[in-house]
Each structure stands twice: as C-alpha cells, then as structure tokens.
Amino acid sequence: MHIHAYEKLWLAFAVILILLLIGSVTYGAVGPGVAMVADSEDQIDPGALDEDERFAEPRVEQVGDNHYAAYVIAYQFAFEPSPIVVPENSRVTLYVTSRDVIHGFEVAGTNANTMVVPGEVSEITVEVGEPQEYGLLCNEYCGAGHHGMEGKVHVVSEEEYANLNEGGETA
C-alpha cells in the first residue's frame, strides 16, 4: 500500500504525540502520585447507613499523624456533615457514599472531585493548605432539586480545630 512521504511524517508525529500524552498521565500517577478513585472500598448497603460504623455519624476524625478521615454522606439534596471542618496543612482522606441516587462531590475550584454512587464508597485523599473556606457542590444531576445541593469545606487553623474539638470527641 502506497503511503505518501508527508503522510508517514504526520503518522510519526501523531504516534509520538499519543505516546507523550500516555507518558504524561503515567508520570502524573507515579511522580506526583495522583491516584484514581478506585474500587478500594467494599460495597455498602445504602439503606442501612445509620447502622454503619463509619457513616452512622458523618464526621471528621484524626486517623494518623496529621492525617484525618472524613466520612461524608450525599443525599437528595445535601451533604452531611456540612461544613466539613479540617485543620490546615494536613492530609485528608474522604470517604463519600450516597444514601439514595448517584451524586457528585466536587470542592469547587480544586481537583477534589469524585462520583458518589449508592452502594459504593468513594475514597480520595487530598492535601489541604492554608485556612480557607471552599464551596462543596454536587456535580451530577440527582433530581429536581439538584441545583440546591451544596455544602462547605472549611480548612481552619490548628488552634481553631483544637478548640472545636474540645466540646466533643469528634468534629
């Protein structure tokens, strides 16, 4: 089959571009360590979240050295807890599940973003920086009141976080 010289050049350029793109994604995964939401968590009964140890009481708790876990429920049409309060400059692993339909969990303007599927638990880990208030929104259509589904993520100073937790064992 006859292939014109320019065609061959273009073909080579196209293949190199594709390999570069795959390479950049691979680098993102192994270099900076951007992990994908995956099937790391077991299935959960969406009708019995109040009997689940993690989701009966949606909350943030410390799980390690400067490492916090947030257990979040999405439902028509809100998030719980809201706000999600975490201390500055820490690592936060979010466990998000849905009580009813498919939702989205997006911290506006950041790459903290995941689908929330009933029966599944989405696990993502993020690094938070200086104290700041972020908007939290549902980015998957979930019913007629979808546009009202929002929440907050508050990154607070360590002192403030400590004060908040004085009154109770969880935040």
Partner: peptide
C-alpha cells in the same frame, strides 16, 4: 476551569463564590 458544574438549573450557589 472555575469548577462550575454541568447539568444544573442554577449554577450560582448561596454559600460560596467561584474563584
């Protein structure tokens, strides 16, 4: 890029502003 979601009737929210 600002984080505005698709598929919503009212992309403006009461609790926060976009960057």
């Amino acid at each position: 890029m600002l984080g505005v979601p698709r598929r919503t009737a009212e992309p403006e929210y009461s609790g926060f502003e976009y960057p």
